[in-house]
């Protein structure tokens, strides 16, 4: 019974490949769990020390006195990310719409590869450009407005980050728009809609889940960016963020201080707590984004 045994073999093969394909997924999930477990374990003394709430909300950062108030770093990270997205999202979405729907073919042929290269430029280079160009510019702007600033501030950090995430978001949104069937546009134009109406009513509506996914990616990038921010943000903890004042973010804090002064009691624990907060916020954020995407997809 050759047929029988070969069928058995094929079923077993199917079973084995099924498992093999699952391995990478399991590794990825395992890594995530491991991160959480390690970070939680490392920050355990602060989490359970009774004054964790104080760690989250206090602005006193005096490690030598055992005071680890993370609030300025948390709010600093949020402020930088928020301002970055306010600057970057309209620009990148509009630019993507223009490039895909309205730009002449030649401009497209030049612009798209350039954008992809920009998206791949390492963040140190953006940071360096920020130091050379944006710090003096923002300083001059502050001067013109009568505000005393070093130029190393929230606004500069957000500008540099915006320049950095724009190509990323733009490139993804462009791909999403390009994947929308031409029939969608034709159906509307044939009814007598203008190009803009066709874009606005149908193309953007169909692309919305993709655009949201692109924005999420931009947020994650901005939220976790370390190097570029460290180079231009001034790195002074400020409990009340302000455009022209310095800002200190969680990733910058961890990168700056980890490995130094670890002889101070609880210092490493505080940094690990900062890392844990970063992880939790990013995880929640992505989870929420997924929920939005699932709902949108179900609607149409």
């Amino acid at each position: 019974m050759l047929g029988d045994s070969s069928l058995k073999y094929r079923v077993r093969e199917d079973c084995i490949t099924g498992w093999l394909l699952k391995v990478p997924v399991l590794i990825a999930v395992g890594m995530l769990v491991l991160f959480f477990v390690v970070l939680t374990a490392k920050s355990w003394p602060l989490l359970t020390g009774g004054n964790f709430w104080q760690v989250l909300t206090s602005s006193e950062w005096l490690p030598s006195e055992g005071k680890f108030g993370l609030w300025p770093f948390i709010i600093g990270t949020i402020a930088v990310t928020f301002l970055t997205m306010v600057l970057a999202v309209p620009v990148s979405v509009l630019a993507a719409v223009f490039l895909n729907e309205f730009a002449p073919k030649k401009l497209k042929a030049i612009a798209l590869p350039v954008i992809d290269v920009l998206a791949a430029v390492p963040s140190v280079i953006y940071g360096a450009c920020g130091v050379i160009a944006f710090i003096p510019m923002v300083k001059a702007l502050g001067g013109a407005l009568g505000i005393n600033t070093t130029g190393r501030c929230l606004l500069t950090a957000a500008l540099v980050l915006a320049i950095m995430v724009i190509p990323v978001i733009l490139s993804i949104v462009r791909d999403v728009l390009a994947a929308i069937p031409q029939e969608a546009r034709e159906a509307l134009l044939a009814l007598g809609a203008t190009r803009w109406e066709a874009t606005y009513h149908v193309v953007l509506k169909l692309a919305l889940p993709g655009i949201i996914a692109a924005i999420m990616l931009g947020v994650s990038r901005a939220f976790g960016e370390t190097m570029a921010v460290m180079m231009v943000a001034g790195s002074i903890p400020e409990p009340k963020p302000s455009l022209f004042k310095a800002v200190y973010t969680l990733p910058a804090l961890i990168a700056d201080k980890y490995g130094e002064m670890l002889s101070i009691k609880m210092y490493d624990v505080a940094l690990m707590t900062a890392a844990l907060i970063l992880m939790v916020v990013i995880a929640f954020f992505n989870f929420g984004a997924h929920l939005i995407l699932i709902r949108l997809r179900r609607k149409y």
Binding site: A184, E186, A190, A193, V202
Partner: peptide
């Protein structure tokens, strides 16, 4: 162009329902 196109309904090979 808009009012001219309006005068001519168009059915493509594959129908495309608007997302609404």
């Amino acid at each position: 162009l808009i009012s001219l196109r309006k005068k001519m309904g168009f059915l493509s090979q594959r129908p495309f329902p608007l997302p609404c």
